[in-house]
Structures are given as C-alpha cells and as structure tokens.
Design a binder for these strands. Structure first.
Length: 180
DNA sequence: GCGACAG
DNA sequence: ATCTTGTCGC
C-alpha cells in the first residue's frame, strides 16, 4: 500500500468553559474542534475524519466522532482509549463492545499489546473503520499516528500558552519532533 | 439505591 | 484529563 504522510496541521486554543461529563464530551470540545477542522475543510478534499473519542459506542449512538462527522457530512471513525458503554463480547475470536443487542465497537490491539476501542462514526461501517485504523499505527504509539500527532500537539501547545478567552487557530508543524 | 463513566 | 517514580523493552 502507498505510504501516507501528514500534509497539514492546526490547533484551536481557548480556555475550556464546559466541564467534562461522560456522554456529553462533544459539548465540551466541539466549539474548539470546528474552527480547527474548518481550516482543513476549506483547503483540502477531506474524505475521512479520525476522532479521539467514541463514535456510536455511546448512550445515544452519538459520540463526538459521530457528532463531528455529521456536522461536516464526512465519514468519521471514533478511536477511544477507554470503554464508555457496552459489554465485552467475543465473536469469531475477536473482541467487541455490545450495547442493547448491537455490536457498537471493536477492541483493537495496539503495536505494543495494549488495546483501544474503534467505533463507526458517521457514514462508516465497523469493519472498514477497523481496517483503516490498523494501517495507521506507527510503532510504538498507542494511537493511530494522525491521532497521536494531534494529541501530542494539543498537549505541547497547552504548555506554552496563556489560557485566553478568545479563540485562536494556529498552524502547526506536521512532524512530531518539531512540535516539542 | 449503587456502581460505571470517552476526554 | 492530570499528577507522578521507578521500570522495562526497543
């Protein structure tokens, strides 16, 4: 398969004003996510969105990954480090999360043996989501590379910024070492 | 009523 | 998420 590369990167900065409540993560992060995503949408042909958080493996099948995909009308995939809802079940030797009789997420093995939960967001099917996430791993990172980079960038920017009340969207380096 | 609970 | 020491594999 063709080698992929990071083309562009942006980070939205502002002091958060909504608390984290399980099941309502989108309310806390969407107003930061949207401005940053718009920078990408306005300049590139986007055909898939990876989101750090659950997709349909959510109490109302509307995790932040589903929410973002729906907002921009793009296929989306949810990648979460921890379970939110559902019970673990085994189908054909693979582990999944089942909620109210429906398989809503797959448990995927990371390069170092850990596990993450992959769920369909918008316009997406579980097995497609899993196959895509698997080819985006980059040893030894726990998250598929695009999300690892995003996570790293957000933490780095939080360290050297003074929390402001006004939203700022800043362009970022597309390589990991330059971001630290 | 009690425990669970993405980031 | 964040805090935080030592420890293990590559």
């Amino acid at each position: 398969m063709k080698k992929s590369r990071v083309v562009d990167c942006y980070v939205a900065i502002r002091r958060v004003c909504i608390p984290y409540i399980p099941g309502l993560l989108a309310f806390r992060e969407m107003y930061l996510l949207v401005p940053a995503v718009l920078r990408i949408i306005n300049r590139y042909c986007v055909d898939l969105m990876l989101v750090d958080g659950h997709g349909i493996s959510h109490p109302r099948r509307l995790g932040i990954a589903s929410h973002v995909g729906l907002a921009f009308n793009k296929p989306s995939i949810g990648v979460a480090k921890k379970r939110l809802i559902g019970k673990e079940v085994i189908r054909n030797g693979n582990h999944f999360l089942e909620y109210k009789g429906e398989v809503v997420a797959a448990e995927v093995r990371t390069p170092r043996g850990g596990r993450i939960f992959v769920s369909p967001g918008h316009l997406m099917e579980l097995h497609i989501a899993v196959s895509i996430v698997k080819r985006l791993f980059k040893y030894p990172y726990k998250l598929p590379y695009p999300l690892h980079l995003a996570d790293s960038i957000s933490k780095a920017s939080k360290k050297l910024r003074t929390p402001s009340e006004t939203l700022k969207v800043v362009k970022c380096p597309t390589s990991l070492d330059l971001s630290l």
